[in-house]
């Protein structure tokens, strides 16, 4: 069974690669693989997926921040909402029906994927509404797009609405323990009008922080099993570093398409959990 560590490592390389490209944690790959393929206890699988989220985030963020793909100021500002949302979510978890939440967010994610699909056909030079808060916080930025071989300057808008959406995203992750990146990317892409790659890189930057806050609990409860988490951490880190080399060279349209597909899968998974 030396294959356990080797197989798990390679599957996690893929999870880290996908997660770092799309700004999601990779839990949608890690948890089912651990429970269904390797018969790992669900609690230990969730503990390992927390590790996976943090590894995806930190592994890729070093490169994304340096190349300005991450809009660090946007990310740090929105973390105000995601972290408070996560705390709120954990507190109201007992008061709301998880099933209903799965249905609600399954629908929201399906709607987001349709809207993001429409983004394929929208002109990229649509005027961006002026936003005083984004001006004051100096959120506008630029990055060099290697795929397009040019610098892309962009303006950020609807900062307050974005903050509100991030509070909801944080709350959902506090409530359901999943899906934080899947909500963050559409919020930045659709509402705040960040370029697609900046949205996934900035989401990637943020997800590690909320996961780290809850990781201590999982650790104290003994749900982070070193023998399960070690191959996950190593594999995901390697995959995320690889992903961070790849993202600058991929076209935004490719990332958008991949993201929409994954969004639909997560949405279907949530709807299934809600009604099954």
């Amino acid at each position: 069974m030396a294959s356990f560590v080797v197989e798990l490592f390679f599957i996690c390389v893929i999870a880290g690669l996908a997660g770092s490209l799309l700004g999601i944690g990779g839990g949608i790959i890690v948890v089912p693989v651990l429970t269904l393929v390797f018969h790992v206890d669900i609690r230990l699988a969730i503990g390992a997926s927390i590790i996976s989220v943090i590894a995806t985030s930190s592994g890729a963020a070093a490169a994304y921040v340096k190349e300005h793909l991450t809009n660090m100021r946007v990310g740090m500002f929105l973390e105000v909402a995601t972290t408070t949302g996560a705390v709120t979510g954990a507190y109201v978890a007992g008061l709301v029906s998880r099933r209903a939440l799965y249905v609600v967010f399954g629908v929201i994610l399906a709607y987001s994927s349709v809207q993001m699909f429409r983004g394929h056909f929208q002109k990229t030079d649509r005027p961006v509404p002026k936003d005083g808060l984004a001006d004051r916080l100096q959120l506008h930025d630029a990055y060099y797009d290697e795929a397009e071989k040019r610098e892309i300057r962009y303006k950020v808008t609807h900062t307050k609405f974005g903050l509100f959406l991030m509070y909801i995203a944080g709350m959902v992750s506090g409530l359901l323990g999943i899906g934080s990146g899947a909500l963050k990317v559409p919020a930045m892409d659709l509402a705040m009008r960040l370029p697609m790659k900046v949205s996934t890189a900035t989401s990637n930057f943020m997800i590690g922080v909320t996961a780290a806050a809850s990781a201590g609990v999982y650790f104290a409860r003994g749900e982070i099993d070193p023998f399960v988490a070690a191959p996950v951490a190593a594999g995901v880190l390697v995959g995320a570093v690889g992903g961070s080399r790849l993202l600058p060279r991929l076209k935004s349209a490719v990332i958008r398409t991949l993201f929409i597909v994954v969004l639909l899968i997560i949405s279907a998974e949530m709807l299934y959990k809600g009604v099954a």
């Binding site: 944690g25 839990g27 997926s49 927390i50 989220v53 740090m76 500002f77 973390e79 105000v80 972290t83 408070t84 996560a86 705390v87 979510g89 954990a90 507190y91 978890a93 992750s173 506090g174 409530l175 359901l176 323990g177 999943i178 934080s180 997800i207 922080v209 909320t210 996961a211 780290a212 806050a213 809850s214 990781a215 201590g216 609990v217 104290a220």
Partner: peptide, 21 residues
């Protein structure tokens, strides 16, 4: 203030042991 606030929320949620991922 923004980063200090985030740091304090993290420390609080770490101590409360309640926040999700």
């Amino acid at each position: 203030p923004i980063t200090v606030f985030v740091f304090l929320v993290l420390v609080t949620s770490f101590l409360l042991g309640k926040a999700g991922g």
